[in-house]
Design a protein around this nucleic acid. Sequence first.
RNA 1: CGGGGAGUAGCGCAGCCCGGUAGCGCACUUGACUGGGGGUCAAGUGGUCGCGGGUUCAAAUCCCGCCUCCCCGACCA
Length: 477
Amino acid sequence: MKDITKMSDDFDRWYTDVVRKAELADWSGVRGMMVVRPYGWAMWEAIQRAFDDMIKESGHENWAFPLLIPRELLVKEAEHIEGFGPEVAWVTKAGAAMEELEEPLAVRPTSETIIGHIIRRYIQSHRDLPKLTNQWNSVVRWEMRSRLFLRSREFWWQEGHTFHASAKEAIEEADLILGYYRSVAEDWLAVPVLVGKKSPAETFPGAVHTLTLEGLMRDGLALQMGTSHYFGQNFARAYDISFSNKDNERELCYSTSWGISTRMVGAIVMAHGDDSGLIVPPKVAPVQVVVVPIFRDDASRAKVEAFINQWSPQLKQHGIRFRVDWRDERPGDKYAHWELKGVPLRLNVGARDVDAAQVELVDRLSRERRALLVSGIATALTSELERFQKRLFERAQEYQRANTVELGTLDEVVSHFRSRGGFAWVEWCGDEAEEARLKADSGGVTIRTIDEHAKPSGKCFVCGQPAKYRVALAKAY
RNA sequence: CGGGGAGUAGCGCAGCCCGGUAGCGCACUUGACUGGGGGUCAAGUGGUCGCGGGUUCAAAUCCCGCCUCCCCGACCA
């Protein structure tokens, strides 16, 4: 409990310590396969609810598509299979005798191919469009190196797949979802993000363009927190997904796909945590308020318990997720325990407080203690939670601001990232060879996103020719 | 997937070189004292020594194969 590695000593160990000791997740014993424990899964459930509500509101429907994909289907879209080929796991045998299958089945690394193949049945007319599908599932990618939540061979996500009658509508769909993702990251997780387009080198295999959101973690590395892809007619062509348009002509659909994953939970850890453990944004916190009763004998325990019972039902009525920690531990242990778990607000309640009709409120960010009268406590805590959410976001914003710079040349970029992390904005001509050179020369700095709204007026940071794009650079997970 | 290290109680480790009763700290259980920031004392529980095979009278220890984990690199939501 006490022995989490200090963040400043070794960020990676700190991360692993926090994830495991705060009981978010664990390794399973099968290489790269993670166990998400209830406390971590509860955060994912909060994210799921938030995003699911958003997409339902705009007419999306949840489906369940198959786990296994025939090889012939997977390989139809050339770029797609080229991109995913190296990390696909195959089922080649079945039954007690392990008989060889006639056709190997891929365990889905993502479902564009199988959904494309299936959805074409349900699309005949422009009246069947748009078809807005989503599924909550897990996928398998045969990664060589794994980290809890950030890179495991199986991970949980949602994958949305939509089909439209026009390019414009599909492009708007990808934009709409990106906006939802931004809201999940900023409004729910309190992690400020850069949003924009990926460079060609980082674009999803088979996509026309990929939109991304990039958060900044406390070790200065960027984390891709979600992507939304516009496919044009690429997948519709490969899987023959067409419809009769208003002029009764056959036309290929325009499609999109988009996903956010349990990686989001890793982002919460790395964007907000400190040497004492997690700090969980109230909106996704499994426990928002923890009550630590303080007593020394049966009589004082009864007194404190009766007091807590007076006002705690109000918290429930106000929808506050709270817990009273009656475990037989000392208060100091409980404080440390709930700090490790990142619970935003703690109420210490002892006999003195009972007499004063108040509780002692301690928040996870400042750790300051102050008295809070129990009259109107639920309303007060609700606004404290809102304020906590806001403070956490502002703190992360300030961190992002303090770790974002503007640079002019490749030399500056290389030397800057030798000693620091964070984001660096530069202007770029768009040449892909230069993007590769950036990565090689700088030891892994990549273009995280392109600012779609900026109109560059300067020179490319690599070649000095007139720039076309303003791009954010960072080292990333 | 390359290079290095490791697997012995829930966690951290010693024992292995030189084969012969499986140990230590923390945690856990019970009790007493204690209780507003990580307690004290006492008595206890807990082990297919990662898995499979081999050598041997005898294997945690020696040999072979496999699995898993950690660190460093190349690839990645």
